[in-house]
Write a protein that binds this DNA or RNA. Structure first.
Lengths: 145, 145
DNA sequence: CAATATAAAGACAAAGAAGTCCAAATTAGG
DNA sequence: CCTAATTTGGACTTCTTTGTCTTTATATTG
């Protein structure tokens, strides 16, 4: 359960993409979601390798979702960015939590973790994109200043 | 909710200390809890400044808890190490979660966060030290190799 | 006082995350 | 074919975390 800024960027960019019909360029996504463009370009590259995005080079090209937004879970995105085991271990790192009942925090942490992961697996990009209100977008824009 | 290795080290070292009656040297703690000694020395120094530990220099000196282990919460320790707001924000960092209902993850994350923080506030170092079984200690020692 | 054991503090190195820049490859349109 | 718009890839910087090393300050014991 160690999430970096890259996860935030990935979710924000994919969210933005899910709200559009047509492909968007990295530049458009970066400015819409307020993400450093060159950094996002690398993230996009990673997400293509992980099968979350597809891209089209050249004029008129851009980035598209590899699957419908309703079928992409947050869990999938996080694992693509942070690695396949990112959601398994305890944030305290006292030990790899999933499967070590000897950890003193295990009895409390594990059920919570299970609920979080369950939620992430259940929640699709489409839902997040829809749930993000215009109000929140304005807030983000203000934060950016 | 951004926790680093330092938090793990702090909890392990304090746990070890809580199991003893008398002060222990940084060296003893480091080897018992398998933490790099010089790094732990700095952590101890921080925890002294934050009022969690007291130290005694010179021969026969060492590190002691500033308060009884039953009165030190995990929350306190985490905030001492990571900063006072470490437990407030969302691990996805989509926005500062505590108090931003516009975040699309807020409705799900915030109750979970509240439960985690509640647990951390309720759980004392003494409980964790007690709950840590000898089996776990052996496991940690094996892991160290 | 001398020797020893200890914490404290600072400089430094290593590794990873975040961010920037630039050149190359690819595609569309004129 | 040429140009513009794109992604791709690599080199590089900067910052934070983690880790090491050395010196200094402080206390105890004999």
């Amino acid at each position: 359960m160690r999430l970096t800024l890259s996860t935030k960027y990935a979710i924000l960019a994919l969210e933005e993409l899910a709200r559009r019909e047509s492909p968007a360029s990295v530049q458009e996504l970066a400015s819409a979601a307020d993400i450093p463009q060159a950094y996002l370009a690398k993230l996009v590259s990673l997400l293509v390798r992980m099968g979350v995005l597809t891209t089209q080079r050249g004029r008129g090209g851009g980035v598209s979702l590899a699957k419908p937004a309703g079928t992409v879970s947050l869990k999938e995105i996080i694992e693509a960015v942070e690695g396949p085991t990112a959601l398994q271990d305890c944030p305290f790192e006292l030990s790899p939590c999933a499967g070590d009942p000897c950890c003193p925090l295990y009895p409390v942490w594990d059920p919570l973790r299970a609920r979080i992961v369950g939620f992430l697996a259940q929640t699709s990009l489409a839902e997040v994109a829809q749930r993000t209100t215009p109000k929140r977008r304005e807030q983000n824009e203000r934060d950016a200043e």
